[in-house]
Simulated scan of single mutants.
Amino acid sequence: MTQDDLLSIISIDPNICVGKPCIRGHRIWVSLILDYLAGSATIENVLEAYPSIEREDVLACIGYGAEMSRDVFVELPLSKKKEKSIADAVA
């Protein structure tokens, strides 16, 4: 299955889920599936949680996320290491 085939599985309709990208024919947001995967769920875990979708649907969500990241980036705050104070070092 090509990237274009996978992306055809994703639909955006302003009348469905307020226009959020969803798996075609479902009201399952792409972002929801990506959140599951980012939280260390496997594709199999997602399929168990949503038995009405298929492996290709999950791969389409990943492909959509990849396409979105090519054009748009989210600025993340730099993490600062917590510096130990002298009091912490002595304790």
Rank of each mutant, 00 (worst) to 15 (best):
K81G: 05
M68I: 12
R27N: 13
E83L: 15
D71A: 01
S85F: 07
A49F: 11
Y64R: 00
D57Y: 00
S69A: 10
S79H: 03
L7I: 07
K81D: 05
L32M: 15
Y64V: 07
L47F: 10
V74G: 02
G25T: 09
V72L: 12
N45Y: 08
E67K: 01
V58S: 10
G65P: 01
L37C: 12
A49W: 12
A38Y: 09
S11Q: 11
S85W: 12
A91M: 06
L34N: 15
V72A: 02
D71M: 06
I62F: 03
I33Y: 01
T2D: 05
D5C: 00
G65Y: 00
L32T: 12
V72R: 13
I12L: 06
G63A: 15
A89W: 15
I23V: 15
M68G: 03
L6P: 03
V58Q: 14
F73L: 13
D5S: 02
A89Q: 15
L34A: 14
E56C: 04
L6G: 06
K82A: 15
W29V: 11
G39P: 08
T42K: 09
K81R: 06
K80Q: 08
V72F: 10
D71T: 02
Y36D: 07
A91R: 02
M1C: 00
S79M: 06
I33P: 00
Y64I: 01
S40Y: 11
V90A: 05
K82Q: 13
L78E: 13
K82V: 08
D57R: 04
S40E: 12
I23F: 04
A38P: 01
L78T: 11
A66I: 14
V58W: 06
E75M: 03
D35N: 11
E48S: 07
K84N: 12
T2L: 07
L76E: 06
C22S: 01
Y36M: 15
W29R: 12
Y50F: 14
K82L: 13
T42G: 11
C17G: 00
I12F: 04
K81P: 05
G25W: 02
I16M: 03
E83H: 01
I16K: 01
D88K: 05
V30W: 00
K81W: 04
S85A: 08
G19S: 15
T42F: 09
A87P: 12
C22A: 08
Q3P: 10
A49M: 09
S79T: 04
S11K: 11
N45F: 07
R24I: 03
S8C: 11
